[in-house]
Nucleic acid binder design. Structure first.
Lengths: 194, 194
DNA sequence: AGCGCTTCTTGATCCACATCAAGTGGGTGC
DNA sequence: GCACCCACTTGATGTGGATCAAGAAGCGCT
């Protein structure tokens, strides 16, 4: 029942970047597999070399790393976006990051060896690989500018305005970490002004 | 005298990532142009849409943005690496960053339209585009982990150990900004322990 | 439903680094 | 060569947010 995977999600997602002919899609499609993760399960773990690249079908995941017993949250993935430890996936070295399912999640993944194979065989797929990286870089640059330009309170207000749904789904300590502040500071901002 | 451009620098640099056949190189080579920048001249400016992508032949440049009259330095480019405002280059929107020649610089650049054309015509060039973005992403991830894991003093020590030559070339206020501290803090760290 | 663990809240205190201020020195341009 | 402008240094003071501490409230698990 390959055709049912993601109910067309994968092709739709790829075709946000490049068009595939039907014969091309026939080569691409069989390599994607749905994988389920229970709440709190790990999609990727530090120390492990990542072999999968994912599209999120359902659920939310958080990306973080540990240092001195603290967790530093770098981002969240949800419907239609990418998931997994892209850093380890690219370098093929033991990962520095954890990706954990915040809610029960269904991800549609492709193995690295299969993806590289598609890059070789289908120019449009290589382009797809380039374009998602461009998007990633632009997102990172935006986030970096905001981290440096805004105070803790301004970053909090920005998040409330832009992604209020995250407040419902993600633990406050993780949002706090994502915003580069302690849970205590986050809690005080919530209390004093919404 | 196209063959003299960069004395082979461009082909060598590209071939760190992908191999080009001689006929492919013959298509690629004519699109690269050497551009010179005086000390303190701007390679890229905020508000302008970047049309060039550069390889550094000579000199050092700094990447920064302005906010509330402060400059925030995000990185430096030098021999053999990339330069220019990649964020604006990718998005084709007015730039958020400045790239300024710290020392007199010679950059070898290609226009965006020409590069996209090469992506269309030469699969190896599209792969090259993907691979340098992968390198960029990995570098960003490394830097982000360090920013979050290390104190100001540790970041200072790390830089001294890893890139001592930068201390000779770049203004201390810019290195301080790159390390996310004020010039005063940087100066005090220098004074108290080397 | 009740137990136990984790998260969240709230208050008191602390501190690394920023800010403000003033003086010194080096490089650049005329 | 001199003047001006920054960059750099050094000291005094300030503060945003961290840390420490101790309850309260959720929430999963059996």
């Amino acid at each position: 029942m390959a055709a049912a995977i993601g109910a067309g999600l994968v092709r739709t997602t790829i075709e946000r970047y490049v068009k595939l002919t039907d014969p091309e899609w026939a080569l691409v499609e069989p390599h994607w597999h749905e994988r389920s993760f229970a709440k709190a399960a790990f999609v990727s773990r530090a120390e492990v070399v990542e072999q999968w690249f994912y599209i999120v079908r359902e659920g939310v995941q958080r990306l973080y790393f540990e240092h001195d017993g603290n967790e530093h949250c770098l981002g969240f993935a949800y419907g239609g976006s990418w998931s997994g430890d892209y850093d380890s996936f690219v370098r093929q070295r033991p990962g520095r990051f954890f990706v954990q399912a915040v809610t029960e999640s269904k991800l549609i993944g492709i193995r690295r060896s299969d993806l590289l194979d598609l890059y070789d065989r289908i120019p449009a797929m290589e382009r797809f690989g380039r374009l998602i990286l461009e998007e990633l870089i632009v997102g990172r640059a935006t986030r970096e500018v905001e981290q440096l330009s805004l105070s803790a309170r301004e970053r909090y207000r920005m998040l409330v305005q832009r992604s209020p749904q995250l407040l419902q789904i993600i633990a406050q300590k993780d949002i706090a970490s994502y915003l580069r502040m302690t849970p205590e500071t986050f809690s005080r901002m919530r209390a004093r002004e919404i």
